[in-house]
C-alpha cells in the first residue's frame, strides 16, 4: 500500500543569535493509512520541529526548510506557500498540542473554537457546524455537550481541555493526525484515558497518527512503528517489536535503559551521560558518539548511514557494519526489554 505521507531528506534550520541551528538534518520516514508512528527522543532532538514542518508551522523568516520533500496527496507540502497550506491545515492534517492549559483561546467559547475549522474547511452553515461540534464533543467523551459548548476553556479541567483539543483536531476527519506529546502535561490517570480515547478514535476513523513523545511506555501501548530521533536525525526506525525487542542503536539502548518499569525496584535506572550536542555546530561523525559508551573510532570521523536490519527495521550506527565488533546491549537493557513485554501485555 502506498504511504499517505512520505518525508524525504527533510532539513529545517533556524537563524538565531548564536548562529544557524540545524534542528532537523535529513529526516526520512513514511506513514501508511491507519498506522500510528511514534517519534521518540529527548527534548531538542528535533521531533517537534519535524512535525511543525509537516504542518507548515515553521516560523519564517528565522526558520527555513532548505532541503527536503514532504509528499502528501500528490503535493510537496514543503513547497506550498502559507495560503495553500491554510487549506490543508486542519482539514487533511491536524495537530494536538502538548499543553491543553494554554492551547485553547481563553476568550473564545469552546463551541466556537470547534466550529471555526468546520465552517472554514467544510463550508458548513452555523447550525450544521454546531450539530457536528456536539457530535465531536460526544465522541471525545465530554458530558453535557450542549452546556459545555457555551463555556470558556478555564471552566474545563486539563483532561477535558485536551479532549476539546482532540475534538478540534478531529473536526474535519483529517487523514493525518499529529499529536505532539499530548499527554505529557496531564496527570497519569488522565494520560491513560486520553491514550485510550485516541486509540478508540483511530479505530473508528482509520486516521493515521504521528505520535510524538519522550515516554517509551506510551509508545509500546499506542504505536505500530517507532522512529528514534537524536540531534535532528532518525537514528533507528522499525516496528514496535523491532525497536523494543531487538534495538540496534546504542542511543535506543540508552532510552530503554532509562525507562522505569513496574518491577524495576531492585536495579538502578540507567541514565545517558552528557547532554545533546549543540546543533549550531553539529559534531563531526556520529552526533551521539561523545555520549556513547560503545563508540568506535570511526564514529568520530564519519556519519553512519542507515543500515538495514530487516525489511521493517533499520538503524544508523556503525555497530551494524560488517567490520564492527559484536557488541551486545548492556544487561540492564536486556532485562528492561523483558520488563516492557510484561507491562505491555498488562496494559492491553
Amino acid at each position: 500500500m502506498d504511504p499517505i505521507l512520505d518525508v524525504k531528506n527533510l532539513n529545517v534550520t533556524f537563524d538565531t543569535y548564536g548562529g544557524k541551528v540545524q534542528a532537523v538534518r535529513g529526516v526520512n520516514f513514511s506513514l501508511k493509512k491507519g498506522e500510528t508512528l511514534a517519534i521518540v527522543g529527548e527534548s531538542g532532538s528535533g521531533k517537534s520541529v519535524t512535525t511543525k514542518a509537516l504542518m507548515g508551522l515553521i516560523k519564517k523568516p528565522a526558520g527555513k526548510i532548505p532541503e527536503g520533500e514532504i509528499l502528501f496527496d500528490g503535493k510537496d507540502l514543503a513547497k506550498l506557500d502559507n495560503k495553500q497550506m491554510q487549506k490543508i491545515r486542519g482539514k487533511d492534517l491536524s495537530m494536538i498540542f502538548q499543553d491543553p492549559m494554554t492551547s485553547l483561546n481563553p476568550t473564545m467559547k469552546i463551541g466556537k473554537q470547534i466550529m471555526e475549522g468546520l465552517i472554514l474547511h467544510q463550508k458548513l452553515s452555523k447550525q450544521q457546524a454546531k450539530e457536528r461540534a456536539l457530535e465531536l464533543l460526544n465522541l471525545v467523551g465530554i458530558p453535557y455537550p450542549e452546556k459545555r459548548m457555551n463555556q470558556y476553556p478555564h471552566q474545563f479541567s486539563g483532561g477535558m481541555r485536551q479532549r476539546v483539543v482532540i475534538a478540534i483536531a478531529l473536526a474535519c476527519n483529517p487523514k493525518v493526525l499529529i499529536a505532539d506529546e499530548p499527554t505529557t502535561a496531564l496527570d497519569v490517570t488522565i494520560q491513560a484515558q486520553i491514550i485510550e480515547l485516541m486509540k478508540d478514535i483511530q479505530k473508528k476513523m482509520d486516521t493515521s497518527i504521528i505520535f510524538i513523545t519522550h515516554d517509551l511506555g506510551v509508545v509500546a501501548n499506542v504505536a505500530d512503528r517507532v522512529a528514534v530521533m537524536y540531534a535532528g536525525k532518525i537514528v533507528e526506525i522499525g516496528t514496535v517489536d523491532d525497536v523494543f525487542y531487538n534495538p540496534k542503536h546504542p542511543y535506543t539502548w540508552g532510552l530503554l535503559g532509562s525507562l522505569p518499569t513496574v518491577d524495576s525496584n531492585e536495579e538502578k535506572l540507567m541514565a545517558i551521560p552528557g547532554t545533546p550536542p549543540d546543533l549550531i555546530h553539529p559534531p563531526k561523525g556520529d552526533a551521539f558518539a561523545a555520549r556513547n559508551e560503545f563508540a568506535l573510532a570511526i564514529d568520530f570521523e564519519e556519519e553512519p548511514p542507515m543500515f538495514k536490519v530487516s525489511d521493517t527495521h533499520s538503524a544508523a550506527t556503525w555497530l551494524l557494519h560488517e567490520n564492527a565488533p559484536d557488541i551486545e546491549p548492556p544487561a540492564t537493557v536486556k532485562k528492561r526489554m523483558a520488563g516492557i513485554s510484561v507491562e505491555g501485555e498488562r496494559q492491553s
Binding site: 558518539a289 561523545a290 555520549r291 556513547n292 559508551e293 560503545f294 563508540a295 568506535l296 573510532a297 570511526i298 564514529d299 568520530f300 570521523e301 556503525w318 557494519h321 567490520n323 564492527a324 565488533p325 557488541i327
Partner: peptide
C-alpha cells in the same frame, strides 16, 4: 578494521 576499534569516551 582499525576504524572499528572501541574507543573510550
Amino acid at each position: 578494521k582499525e576504524k572499528f576499534q572501541r574507543v573510550h569516551v
